[in-house]
């Protein structure tokens, strides 16, 4: 559960696409998700994402993420129902307009989150960073910051787990059923976590500099990321998706 965004090795077309192409594909699907305004289109895009995941062999992992996301989506739905007041009242505080916009918001949330995670699962972070530097001319500094931040997510969550274990062993009642009490108990743990994060980040910066970070240029990368015919095809598909999103 911790490492949902870890790279899953594979040799599918999706794995072999240029990282920049994958980024474009993700951007196109996200754009279409926001442009499309019918349930059919939104569900279709979500199904497309899930099909891609099944093709790349990461459906199981994505499904586990879905379990986490569905409750969040439901909370959003309830909020929308409460705050969208237009349209006819269906029952108690629920209006038809609220139900429609809320449902769409949920689908959009799921579509965007699943897609971004799917893309990270089929792309090595190093490749993503290098390809963005080479093709999109993004300064390496930003690419490195982004990949390091993502790489630190599991590191910090492990650290948090270890801290929680230590505190539980001391008798802090994390096994309480009350979520508010649990939240209240967890807040003080931010101090140890923050302290270890800051020192880790500093150590990383020093280690990177000692390995020539500031010498790196666009031409440094050993691997090259040329566009192939399949990338061109996918780019065409991206345009089609966006147009489709506007039309539907």
């Amino acid at each position: 559960m911790l490492n949902v965004i870890d790279y899953v090795p594979g040799d599918t077309l999706l794995h072999r696409l240029n990282p920049v192409t994958k980024l474009a594909l993700a951007a196109a699907i996200i754009a279409a998700t926001f442009l499309a305004n019918t349930y059919a289109a939104l569900v279709g895009l979500l199904v497309l994402t899930l099909l891609l995941a099944a093709y790349a062999g990461v459906f199981g992992r994505l499904a586990r993420l879905l379990k986490l996301l569905v409750p969040i989506a439901l909370i959003m739905l309830v909020l929308q129902l409460v705050f969208v007041r237009g349209g006819d009242t269906l029952f108690s505080f629920v209006t038809d307009e609220g139900l429609i916009t809320g449902g769409k918001a949920c689908l959009r949330l799921l579509g965007v989150a699943l897609l971004l995670v799917l893309m990270l699962m089929v792309t090595k972070l190093t490749d993503l960073a290098n390809a963005c530097v080479e093709k999109l001319h993004i300064p390496y500094k930003y690419a490195f910051t982004f990949t390091t931040a993502l790489r630190f997510v599991p590191v910090f969550s492990q650290e948090m787990n270890a801290i929680m274990e230590a505190q539980t062993a001391r008798g802090v009642q994390y096994d309480t059923k009350n979520p508010f009490k649990k939240m209240q108990l967890m807040l003080p743990l931010c101090v140890p976590l923050l302290i270890s994060s800051v020192s880790k980040t500093d150590a990383t910066a020093l280690a990177a500099e000692q390995r020539g970070f500031y010498l790196r240029t666009r031409a440094s990368s050993y691997r090259r990321y040329p566009f192939a015919a399949r990338d061109i095809v996918v780019f065409a598909l991206c345009v089609a998706l966006i147009v489709g999103g506007i039309v539907l």
Binding site: K124, T126, T204, R223
Partner: peptide
């Protein structure tokens, strides 16, 4: 904290590329 990559080979590449 010293590691910059997620795969062993990339970890070695980082310094070689930079220098």
């Amino acid at each position: 904290a010293q590691m910059v990559a997620s795969v062993v080979e990339d970890e070695l590449l980082f310094g070689l590329e930079n220098f």
